[in-house]
Design a protein around this nucleic acid. Sequence first.
DNA 1: TTGTAGGCGTTATCAC
DNA 2: GTGATAACGCCTACAA
Lengths: 335, 335
Amino acid sequence: MTIYDIAKLAGVSASSVSRVINDKPGVNPETRRKIKALLEDNNYVPNDIARGLVTRNSRLVGILVPEAYSIHLMEGAYHITGRLSEVNYGTVIIKTGCTPSECAEGIRSIGERNVDAVVLMGSRYANEKVAGAIRQFMEKKPVFVLNGEITGPNVYSVISDESGGVCSCVNFLAGKGRRRIVYISDAMDRPSSFQKRQGFLRGARAAGICGEEDPESLIYEGRNNDIDSGEEIMERILQEHPDTNGLICATDMLACGAVRTLHRKGIRIPDRISVIGVDNSSFALACYPKLTSLNNMILESGDEIASKLIASLEGRKPGASKIMLLTEIVEREST
Amino acid sequence: MTIYDIAKLAGVSASSVSRVINDKPGVNPETRRKIKALLEDNNYVPNDIARGLVTRNSRLVGILVPEAYSIHLMEGAYHITGRLSEVNYGTVIIKTGCTPSECAEGIRSIGERNVDAVVLMGSRYANEKVAGAIRQFMEKKPVFVLNGEITGPNVYSVISDESGGVCSCVNFLAGKGRRRIVYISDAMDRPSSFQKRQGFLRGARAAGICGEEDPESLIYEGRNNDIDSGEEIMERILQEHPDTNGLICATDMLACGAVRTLHRKGIRIPDRISVIGVDNSSFALACYPKLTSLNNMILESGDEIASKLIASLEGRKPGASKIMLLTEIVEREST
DNA sequence: TTGTAGGCGTTATCAC
DNA sequence: GTGATAACGCCTACAA
């Protein structure tokens, strides 16, 4: 069912039908009614492809998500999808590999999809390879990166102050009298991990909890970012330093794992040790006790991006090209 | 950069360029090399929109997800996305409302996107309104529904035997000597909830755990499907029947909540009470103790759908129009 | 082996 | 107020 079919049925030209479909003026009210009825009766749906060919936009936004399993990022993508659905934009979500080359390849592949804009989920995309791919394949289209920083004329970055956040977590625990505070890092394969780690070092020095000791020695890093990994590392921590009474984990998942070990050993939380996670995810709630967690504002960042995106898509100015959201500690039962 | 631009640069016609791009025969090896080089140098990317207009397919699959917050379904969508990415198909994920009308509206809106096929995530879409919308707006395109049953010439349903699964959970607990087994249902606003509930009733009768009592009295239903809700209901259950020693929850999330209450009351799991969740999600792992959970095969269903989808897209037969996956209890620490 | 012409469904630009 | 007509970028007969 094309506009020509409808036109024939109505005894008018395709142009008139097109005008009715797009609510454009210049068509007799009577004719308009008639065409509208016909459209309805034949449940005509416009062919967005053909439309896109001439209007040069697809009402589609590409979202790249790294395949390294992160529910949290996917939730963010889902959130953005919701916001865009409201204004009748669809999202094409594509999984990419995690290496810089694979990320860059993702840019290229999404480029072929003729999306109107692109969102990069996570700091993993903040690297030179990706920046280059953007220059090559996304020259004219706006690119938004969530929790990562890329520089370019058409690139907008929304990051959250994870470094400052983790730093304040140390301070928070120190304020509760915790003297031996350790940090479980996630895999150091992306900027965000470094940020958090740096934040811990800064906080540890500022709080003066390491004395003569090198604060680096308070950092542990597991094989993976999952619950089992957190469990293992916690085991090691307790073995090496049974006096540990403050714990900050780079993700809620790692924290869940650590908490398991503490349960098993009968170490009470937060009486004997306080635990803080990062992400403020559903895992923080599923954990017992409910985890105090650093809200790194993934959802809020998604909102910011959605707003900028919609503004940009509608021809308005998206605003500042780099913004940072402040994080906040959401206190629950584990501290 | 269009094929015409490349053609001009190479001093040939657009058709030759097109032939090279699509790896079609009938072009001088020398010319082919030259064109290929040009394509590369100008990092030409084909306009999928224009291509779609003539080939009448978009290499895009629509996925409808209900906005009722369900990480689990989104993970499934993500999973399918991954599978389709491998064969260079993109997915357009659209959130829809939860009422039958809103779901049907989603079908219409995805219809405008000229996707090659549609996937409906969850049993919420299994209703007559949606079936009607499919007949109207998706007449020619294959529709796949995950964990829900819709009948139609172009509709393929993959469901999982949640009813049988929950039934066997009752049996499983009864086999462990649990005599008072209760069920916490999720909101009864979709077929899947009914299935699970029915399964419980069937299991309760078969196991003979209700005696003269009406097994309906063993069913509790909370306001929401979240952790807090599970916590509240568990509280009530213990008040009304402190002798409860077996618990089946319609979702892992509800189970997490229930476990919280048990912790608080100092009731040991599984010593005093065994707990089983449904979904076999990450929440089951985040919980302490790790939850025994009924794997309702969402991911596996996604795989089935992806396979059928790809087959169908490539012109092969997708196979049976309705299949059911058997569920299985994944035993962990809570039973 | 190569090029020409027509068409995919829509919108935009003119005449009328 | 209405209707031809030409794009949009690509593919595919068919002709050369």
